[in-house]
Design a protein around this nucleic acid. Sequence first.
DNA 1: TCAGCCCATCGAAGCGCTTCGATGCTCCGG
DNA 2: CCGGAGCATCGAAGCGCTTCGATGGGCTGA
Lengths: 337, 337
Amino acid sequence: MVTIADVARHAGVSPSTVSYVLSGKRAISAATRERVEASIKALGYHPHAGARALASSRANVVALVLPLRTDMHVPILLQIAMAIVTAARGHDHDVLLLTNDEGVEGLHRVARSALVDAVIVMDVELHDPRVPVLRELGLPSVLIGFPADSAGLTCVDLDFAAAAGMCVDHLADLGHTAVALIGPPAGVLERGTGFARRTVAGFEEAAARRGLRAVVRSCEPLHEAVQTTVKELFAEHPEITGLVVHNEPALPPLLQALRGLETAVPRDVSVVAVGPQELAAQVTPTPTMVSIPAEEMGRRAVELLMDKLNGREAPNATLIPPNLTPGHSTAPPPARS
Amino acid sequence: MVTIADVARHAGVSPSTVSYVLSGKRAISAATRERVEASIKALGYHPHAGARALASSRANVVALVLPLRTDMHVPILLQIAMAIVTAARGHDHDVLLLTNDEGVEGLHRVARSALVDAVIVMDVELHDPRVPVLRELGLPSVLIGFPADSAGLTCVDLDFAAAAGMCVDHLADLGHTAVALIGPPAGVLERGTGFARRTVAGFEEAAARRGLRAVVRSCEPLHEAVQTTVKELFAEHPEITGLVVHNEPALPPLLQALRGLETAVPRDVSVVAVGPQELAAQVTPTPTMVSIPAEEMGRRAVELLMDKLNGREAPNATLIPPNLTPGHSTAPPPARS
DNA sequence: TCAGCCCATCGAAGCGCTTCGATGCTCCGG
DNA sequence: CCGGAGCATCGAAGCGCTTCGATGGGCTGA
């Protein structure tokens, strides 16, 4: 193994000088710096992570806690995770993957053993058992999602209320007067996932504001369930001409079901989806959608974490503004018959 | 921070004794061990990971390299990753998440800096640029998937050839005489992903062995593409009565398309799928399928890695035998008209 | 011309742990 | 009753790095 002493010898300086070249914590003359950097390259030196962590009490590793069973759409989860890794690397940090099946104990362990010096928690529930542990550990942390009580925590999420509102506004602007929200399965709401509730709230608030009739439905992502839901919805509320879908896996079967009902999209009914951008490529017509900015969520989470690690203040709540991309699934409602 | 010296003082022993209690590398009397363990619990001691890594030159961390763009079905990827984390924890190791966008350089970095002492690489391609790096680093490593040249490497994967063969056998046993394989998009094959090729090979080999007429088709997972593919397939080969589908996202639209063609499953055509077990719950009829054992793949990979870390010999290739679960999508072919 | 300062660099201590040889027991056989 | 074997434990060195105070040389300004 190549050590800092080897580099120092090779460059004709002391080990501490090499260390200062690496960290930039003291001024080093350009000549010396270049010589040292050349030696580092020549020898292929990489500082020993453990030694560095021991001496500096900074591991330069952040823990990423993934849920074992997830409410979120899995591909999004992974996209966010990847974005987090990439962003963390940009700040010279690595990412340690933790699952919830080791329980909250795992958080304790990695924190107390100084394996990591910060934590990102994904897919936070309203009453998440990890939240009190985070408070207690006193490590810098960022949550993706909002728990019921977010006092003193740093949370990041898409502004789902605004996203739903944006969908409603889009439909209202087109002239629709009665709309429905097709949300995630009932279980997700019951388990207390914040984003689902915020979508519903935003939907209802916007509908009220715009004077629209509004209906909310949960929906399992199974083909049959979708079909039934849609059929019932139009039977009970024939006046509905606009659908907001916040349920990724249900979108393809939903469009399929509409086709089956001889309901043309967007001629007879308009559909706006909230979900990952890739979904747009998988269905026809290309849906008008508010996309979930996985990359930005990951990046923002890391930036906030780095702020906290560097002693800067971080805002308590970061709501990422939604972005609606027009597609071919929305149009003005059919003329009154 | 609580150190080993604090524990030693509390228990009235020397630090080395505490260390030996923890590692079990020397005999310690039962009385002393209990006293030390009590002190550890009382003080809430967790060994400092960096210090431990420095002194023992063992980080007890394995790197998990995920691809950025993936050929595999994303939920499976994540399932395997989670299984790896869980299994690694069972062997007192943690998992560091690496993406490929840092490139092969990231592997070098974590290895040379002793951040990790072993590597698991997922979604290996036939000519994977990471493979030569693994050889060069000399770290214990396990690949999930097979590269073109796997000499000297330890690889784990589902036995896709056997899986495809099992599907063919199932159809042949039911009396089918002409079958087709609906594989992944052409791009996946071209990029040289081993599992796709092995499926094709296994399919053709088994069909030949059983004297079946066999056709192979690639298919994009878009609704329209699936529909076209199916239509063309039956137009060109009306004799086909059995389908093997190795393309997760295409399965739901495929069943849908068959329904559209007034082709009843399994009355007119039988369908066997290769994919994750959860898929079965999302479509009707419940498909007969060979499931991809994500949990087992992750676990086996870790076990092999631990063997190598502990100086034991690990087999070069581990092919996990497939498992066919009968469903309601296969039946004998319709009587000849 | 020299005190005083700052810049660049060095040396050494110490981070918390593991590990190896040394040490003091106890217990056995002769 | 004593030498030697073996068990349980201790002490100290050292892993590779960071960091703090110290040092020395080149300037500046009076």
